[in-house]
Design a protein around this nucleic acid. Sequence first.
DNA 1: GGTCATTACTTAATCATTTAAGTTCGTGTG
DNA 2: CACACGAACTTAAATGATTAAGTAATGACC
Lengths: 354, 354
Amino acid sequence: METTNPDNRPKRLTVKLMAEKLNVSTATISNAFNRPDQLSEARRRWILEECKRHGYLGPNAAARSLRTGRTGNVGVMLADNLAYSLTDPVASEFLHGLAEVFDQRQLNMLLLSSQEDDEHRSRVQEAMVDGFIVYGWLKKGRTYDRLLQHGKQMVAVDFDLEGCTWVNIDNYEGARRSAEHALTKPPSNVAIMGLRLVDTDRVCRIRDHELFNETRAISVRRLRGYLDALEAAGYNVSSDRIWSTPTNTHQDAYQAAREALTSNPRPDLMLCMSDRIALAAIQAALQMGLRVPEDVRIVGFDGIPEGANLHPSLTTVYQQSAEKGRTAARIFLGEKEDRNVLLPTCLLVRESCP
Amino acid sequence: METTNPDNRPKRLTVKLMAEKLNVSTATISNAFNRPDQLSEARRRWILEECKRHGYLGPNAAARSLRTGRTGNVGVMLADNLAYSLTDPVASEFLHGLAEVFDQRQLNMLLLSSQEDDEHRSRVQEAMVDGFIVYGWLKKGRTYDRLLQHGKQMVAVDFDLEGCTWVNIDNYEGARRSAEHALTKPPSNVAIMGLRLVDTDRVCRIRDHELFNETRAISVRRLRGYLDALEAAGYNVSSDRIWSTPTNTHQDAYQAAREALTSNPRPDLMLCMSDRIALAAIQAALQMGLRVPEDVRIVGFDGIPEGANLHPSLTTVYQQSAEKGRTAARIFLGEKEDRNVLLPTCLLVRESCP
DNA sequence: GGTCATTACTTAATCATTTAAGTTCGTGTG
DNA sequence: CACACGAACTTAAATGATTAAGTAATGACC
């Protein structure tokens, strides 16, 4: 039943071969799979039946993609390395949102890290995708250039990419309002726990450092939000009281939290740019015998589910990560008119800062 | 600088066009990108330089894949829908492990759900991948058949797939030892909180139901582990005292936990098949005014990070989810001789069941 | 009976590469 | 000098599909 090569190995089945076997044209086979309206239902059934019987599973993906120019894949380019992104709760939720829409539209997601590899080959070029969702950040460089050059559909998330539609949340306003809330009970000493505020891979205070400005802007916007609220209430926070962690991992967060909590004067309000940081801060505080919120009040950012069920539960700014994914996906698909969506956030007042 | 079509739109750049422009053969251009040893270094540099200048970014992925037969993509087929898997901590960790290895080898991960779509098209067939990692489960059916037929590389994770290498953890032994530990202080009433033990989409007790047997075997193996340990200690747990949740979500877990904790007689030991379930159980218990572990001891399974920092912290069976990913990836790549790896688990004794 | 539309096909061009096999041109060797 | 050999290219044959354009047959309609 199988055609064989000269060397007697079974040959891969193709439309051409099937056409010969069944004595119809390749076009008809192709139509049987792709355009039911182009042939009679009886014939279609028969062809599909025969193909199955002979073991021809359907058109080859690469060939079809070469011909049609589409792949059915969406490249999801993640700022940090893949492994990290997959365990970050906010990134996961975002992917969750993307998946919800793409899965339904029969599109597959191809995970890419924006890391650069070889001198002349780039993942962007070699990725078989119809376009990209670029999440979080993109360092200027070759990958960046290629992305802008290749001309495929593209949506940026959580940052601005020149000449490209974006989706973001209102980081400034979210941060400002959370700080505003926290300040209703005047603190005597405020610490700000930042995330990737500066370009270093160590936990540090931001004094002596330069703030990230353009690309990693989300943290800077949150910072401005905090500072504006503080200023409006008459507080002046020195760069000495602003920490920055290089990653959103428990380990870094915990280290930063300890440093802040053992610093002098000890803060009684900690504004944290992520829930992971805030949770680590709560843990560190409790371990030091401090009471939350009595001795130190703690506010997070993100609204991850974990924060709700702990004691004390976490006061935080909820951001719609999954919705961000869904929105990005819909914009990508052209199902949404609006370009550049800014999603609102919402303050969740809970126990850690009532 | 751009060649144009009759209708004056810029034409896509190809090797052929570049060959004409630069007055070399297509083969040479191809070699410049792919096989540096096939031409002089000077020429290679010059060609790459010119390509860049003209805006030719490199070979078209689909065409190259058609010709070479490889894609550089690994299909990761997830049992549950994508969206769900991306927020499940165990699945995420697994993906994290995969990503670690594949990212380094310059392979991209293409996310697929094993959900079936159309009558005659299947995602398996249309996916542009060099092979598959199949995670968690695969319902017998068309997707299953295609997967077995298409002859590409394949590794099954957390379940057995006929004629296919697998990676799993020792579910039986992990469960058995955790139960054994819990039984050192004799409980008066045991509840088992199962995960997908039976084929229904509601929280229920397993009495009147038939156990999943083959495919979703991981839960059944855990169950056997518990039951064997219980039996060895002289306990006989009726199917009435075994709950099952359809998903590993907080919501289902919480509901099941409440049901179990309000059942009569109230359990003072809960063996939970996932940490999510165990954490929900702790939460439910605390909310009911019960003390953990004094009034009810709770044991989990998975060893997710969350369990460590709570109060009470969670006694659980740690499984190496990320390592499972790394192992699966290495087997996929043929870097590991061993077929069929069974990873050991390790009991983490913490506060919820000291 | 002639015209026109419709249905159900087939023909053949095209998509953008890779690569085995062949060509040319020096150069070192017996 | 003849010869073999390697380097640096080129030629041209795959690779496996889709689809516009063409053809032949059928039936409807006036």
